[in-house]
């Protein structure tokens, strides 16, 4: 049997970093403008798919960029920055392509439904919303909110990956990268789903009233990720 206390006390810092990373992912989901099925029909603002798919797309890209950079340097700042930038690029390109489809394909102007004026540009929103819809496409505030969400998510995901790779172990580098990567993906998905239940599947971004509920998902994620962090560190440290 493995030395549970020994491994945990030697890697306590990484347990805490993984918990912080997972919690950051959970917080980041609240920023991403997800519209779900109504947005896919241009009847609500946001990107027309589910939270989990978006978080996964952006977060996994962040994980891949962080993993690639980790092969070249062990500096935590560069790894985290590349993870964040990778996820921001991915969510940004998803939103810009989605925006083009809404504007040139569906033929609707970007307009939010949760506030009368865009909190960033101060443009009036309600007069551009089609009748019977809550708004459509991605107004500026939602777009910027999404970029912030992508950045935080990528930061959290790469923090989890960085911590898992650095746990003291006796595994070869290729196997370690696979093991830490899939652990990070598992923790990422848990922390992407918890907040998506919190916001009920759709949000417009930081100006959405649902955003105020973020602390509930964050508390839940701290507890859930802490358990996963202990398990992950024990599994990798015990090999």
């Amino acid at each position: 049997m493995i030395d549970i206390v020994g491994i945990l006390s030697a890697n306590l810092l990484y347990v805490l970093l993984i918990t912080i990373g997972g919690t950051l992912v959970s917080f980041s989901v609240h920023f991403v403008p997800v519209g779900g099925a109504p947005a896919a029909m241009a009847q609500a603002p946001g990107i027309g798919t589910g939270t989990v798919q978006l978080a996964a797309g952006a977060g996994l890209t962040g994980l891949i960029t962080a993993g690639t950079v980790l092969g070249l340097t062990n500096s935590i700042a560069i790894v985290l920055a590349s993870g964040a930038v990778g996820a921001m690029l991915m969510i940004g390109s998803t939103m810009i392509i989605g925006q083009m489809v809404y504007v040139f394909g569906v033929g609707v102007p970007p307009a939010g439904g949760k506030s009368k004026y865009d909190p960033i540009t101060k443009d009036q929103q309600d007069i551009y919303s089609s009748q019977g819809t809550e708004g459509h496409a991605l107004p500026t505030a939602s777009y910027i909110s999404g970029i912030i969400g992508g950045g935080l998510g990528g930061l959290g995901g790469s923090l989890v990956y960085y911590s898992l790779v650095n746990v003291t172990n006796n595994i070869g580098m290729t196997d370690l990268a696979g093991l830490a990567g899939i652990f990070a993906v598992g923790i990422f998905f848990i922390n992407a789903v918890i907040p998506s239940y919190n916001i009920g599947g759709t949000t417009e971004g930081f100006h959405d009233p649902k955003f105020k509920k973020w602390y509930r998902a964050v508390i839940s994620s701290i507890i859930a990720t802490f358990m996963c962090a202990i398990i992950g560190v024990l599994a990798i440290g015990g090999l």
């Binding site: 049997m1 493995i2 779900g36 099925a37 589910g50 939270t51 989990v52 798919q53 996964a56 093991l179 899939i182 652990f183 993906v185 598992g186 923790i187 990422f188 998905f189 848990i190 992407a192 789903v193 918890i194 998506s196 239940y197 009920g200 599947g201 996963c228 398990i231 992950g232 024990l234 599994a235 990798i236 015990g238 090999l239």
Partner: peptide, 27 residues
């Protein structure tokens, strides 16, 4: 009615399962 679509819970299942099963097989 989960509010987020069915895929979310499947992903949660396998995310949790992945963390747990790698731990179980490792130790």
């Amino acid at each position: 009615g989960l509010g987020t679509g069915v895929p979310s819970i499947g992903m949660l299942a396998i995310g949790t399962g992945m963390v747990a099963s790698l731990f179980g097989m490792a130790v």
